[in-house]
């Protein structure tokens, strides 16, 4: 059974290995260039306050050039990999056997159905997880100078927070969970729909929905966010907007380097969000007078965020959740094959 599984999966293995090899070479070449840039920026040898400037320069330099494209391309690849695995490895796994009728051949060898499905799911699921993690490790290794600079910069104007989307899902061990989940989702879709192409489409749509919904509506609540309230600071003012419906919106920068800012609001002393009315000075006088008038409102800045220190807790939570989902789907597939007919 292991031989058959391997033999059927050989073409995919070769294609994947070739892709990983090409990617590794490309990342190595551009990674050396990035490391050179990092050393030249002075970040490797800096002390104290100059590090912040060097780091900002380095990141600004990365943002302009090819390195930024490689950085984001790496993130796209890590995100796309589980979807592709689910579509091309998961969905056809059983659907192809049903369409071609070959499961009848396979089930009449001296191998039990349970073993047939367990070996298939186990071996290829393992391959899926290994592939996803290799990709994540490769791209994270490549991007490590960027992350080091981001933490050295101690400033959030760079908007590189590893715990915030989209970076979070492309690092650490989370891709293992995604890959296992996407793979079993594909297998389940193939088993229930029984036709390869529609199963692939459903897998893609289903996994895309999960990947959109998860960071927006589920992940923020895995651990209750830290809420902080501080006096509104004109020094960190970064948004003043006056609408003609007697509205005014003001905002401060949330000074939490590396954190994932969930909400950031200016509230009035009574705790209600400040939405206006605009101060007289802001409507008719200069910027300085406007700022001073905002200061006299005695607003507070209320932020909710997930601190950078929770990165690994979130990684482990999320990986565990997706692995449990994957195991549940796999168990469902095994049960279905054991107790239902396939034709």
């Amino acid at each position: 059974m292991i031989w058959l599984t391997w033999r059927q999966f050989r073409a995919q293995t070769i294609v994947t290995a070739a892709f990983l090899a090409v990617l590794a070479v490309a990342l190595l070449v551009t990674g050396l260039n990035l490391a050179h840039l990092y050393n030249a920026s002075g970040l490797a040898t800096c002390h104290g306050s100059s590090c912040g400037t060097f780091a900002s320069n380095f990141i600004s330099e990365v943002k302009g050039g090819l390195s930024e494209k490689v950085f984001y391309a790496g993130i796209y690849i890590v995100y796309a990999a589980p979807a592709i695995i689910g579509m091309f490895w998961g969905a056809p796994l059983i659907a192809r056997e049903i369409e071609a009728g070959t499961f009848r051949l396979a089930w009449n060898q001296s191998v039990s159905r349970s073993r047939w499905v367990v070996v298939k799911l186990g071996l290829i699921g393992l391959a899926a997880m290994v592939t996803a993690e290799l990709l994540a490790l490769l791209t994270s290794w490549w991007a490590s100078p960027v992350y080091q600079a981001a933490s050295a910069a101690r400033s959030d104007s760079l908007s590189i927070a590893r715990i915030a989307p989209p970076l979070f899902g492309a690092q650490g061990v989370a891709p293992i969970g995604y890959a296992a989940f996407a793979f079993t989702l594909g297998v389940t879709a193939g088993l229930l729909i029984r036709r390869t192409i529609p199963a692939m489409a459903v897998t893609l749509a289903g996994f895309a929905l999960v990947q959109i919904a998860w960071p927006n509506w589920v992940r923020p609540h895995l651990m209750s966010p830290v809420r902080e309230s501080a006096p509104f600071s004109i020094g960190r003012l970064d948004e003043v907007m006056i609408g003609n419906g007697n509205q005014m919106i003001v905002g401060d920068t949330a000074s939490k380097p590396g954190a994932w800012i969930l909400t950031n609001q200016a509230v009035k002393p009574d705790g209600q969000p400040f939405t206006g009315p605009p101060t007289h000075a802001c409507l008719s006088q200069g910027m300085q007078a406007c700022n001073a008038s905002i200061a006299r409102l005695h607003l507070r800045q209320v932020i909710a965020y997930q601190p950078a220190s929770r990165f690994w807790s979130f990684q482990l939570y999320e990986t565990a959740i997706f692995l449990v989902l994957a195991v549940a789907l796999a168990a469902f597939c095994a049960w279905w094959i054991r107790h239902r007919r396939l034709t």
Partner: peptide, 27 residues
């Protein structure tokens, strides 16, 4: 400006952030 600053050895870095609604290729 999208970013500017000085690095070790007096190196200068400066990048243009946007040019109206145009597409910046390099700066």
């Amino acid at each position: 400006l999208g970013g500017f600053g000085d690095g070790p050895g007096n190196s200068l870095f400066l990048a243009v952030g946007s040019k109206g609604d145009g597409w910046i290729l390099s700066s």
